[in-house]
Design a protein around this nucleic acid. Structure first.
Lengths: 201, 201
DNA sequence: GTGTTATACTTAACAGTGTTAAGTTAAATG
DNA sequence: CATTTAACTTAACACTGTTAAGTATAACAC
């Protein structure tokens, strides 16, 4: 009875093929400039085949973004090691978040800007990968509060402030590359340190 | 010789008509979901007429965004009155900026997110309205630094940090309306106060 | 091994898109 | 009144996302 399993494996393989073709095109040419036909051409299948694996173009985007969030989460999890200095860890996490966005600017925009436009149901639902990323942030912040380093006792608000700061600078740097920014690393560091300092007791 | 002037006036009138029809549709239905034909229908002209007034759809978006930036600038200029307490003014300006974004979320996104995607030449060029908005921010910050309230002496970096914070929270609130945000006003205030506190000497 | 069913995929089509080239109408000029 | 010029429209091109119907092939039951 290995037939069904082999078939399922083959199906999954093609699904992944579609997904990675889509990601590559989305990233290189922009979501709006990628047609289902282009994706189909790339994988050498007819356009309609894609619809056997994904509901529509937005669903394809959705799946690509889910992967991106998993990558982001993975990147962040690697930093969680030392709880001794939670502020340092929070700062490093913030930097890692921003750098993730700058290393994969198109993926970041797809996930945090383009997708919300097409998927009103956001994708930060309970149990989602997006929620896990924010949970990670909550944990970091919670540690800082528990150790009495932060003056605010509200984990939620504090986390959201932190997210605002890193999200803001990431998007600005991506969207306005020609703006006369301060030296990039300096700006990033200042954003993080300013926010953390502002949160301290 | 008033003929030419009347003609010019009529042309300008139609240009404005197209522009406001475009804005209304962009805002209500989203840039991607608005076709040139829809705009044309609304103003009861043929689709190609639009091309006599605007180079293409992106140019139309560009013009709409310029108006938005003018509105934003105007909103901010009204707060510049009292220089006695520059930190207070900066805080109020930050709040006004965020509230502008939340009051006209679609306009804000068009200007600061959608447009950069289509117009690689950004629109914060020298002499542009966008630059004037940032100049306003620079002035506020500069005042705070000159009075020795802020510890950083770098106006640029400090302004950019401020911009990151307000831009970040604005976009997050717009893009993820279903996220379990802290009470909105509290979040906004905390973002502003945290950033300002972090910048203080 | 043959007939049947289910699976995977494709072809053709619909209604729509941004944009251009060519054509038309009406107004202003000489 | 004739001619030029400006404003606008019609028709078309090559493309879009998506659906319905059709086709081949592989797996199954007997």
């Amino acid at each position: 009875m290995g037939v069904k399993e082999r078939r399922a494996r083959e199906k999954e393989q093609l699904r992944q093929q579609i997904l990675s073709a889509a990601r590559e095109l989305f990233v290189n040419e922009g979501y709006e400039n990628v047609s289902m036909r282009k994706i189909a051409n790339k994988i050498e299948y007819s356009p309609t085949t894609i619809y056997l694996y994904f509901a529509d173009k937005a669903d394809l985007l959705d799946s690509v973004c889910k992967e991106t969030l998993l990558n982001l989460l993975n990147t962040l999890e690697h930093l969680k090691s030392d709880i001794s200095d939670p502020v340092e860890t929070l700062g490093k996490s913030g930097r890692a978040y921003i750098e993730f966005g700058l290393n994969y600017p198109q993926d970041y925009k797809l996930t945090f800007v383009i997708r919300p436009q097409y998927q009103k149901g956001l994708g930060l639902d309970e149990g989602s990968v997006g929620e896990k990323v924010f949970d990670y942030l909550r944990e970091m912040v919670s540690e800082c509060i528990q150790q009495g380093i932060f003056h605010q006792t509200d984990v939620e608000t504090t986390s959201q402030v932190m997210w605002s700061a890193v999200h803001g600078v990431t998007l600005l740097l991506i969207d306005f590359p020609d703006f006369p920014w301060t030296e990039k690393d300096k700006l990033i560091d200042t954003v993080i340190h300013t926010t953390i300092k502002g949160l301290k007791a």
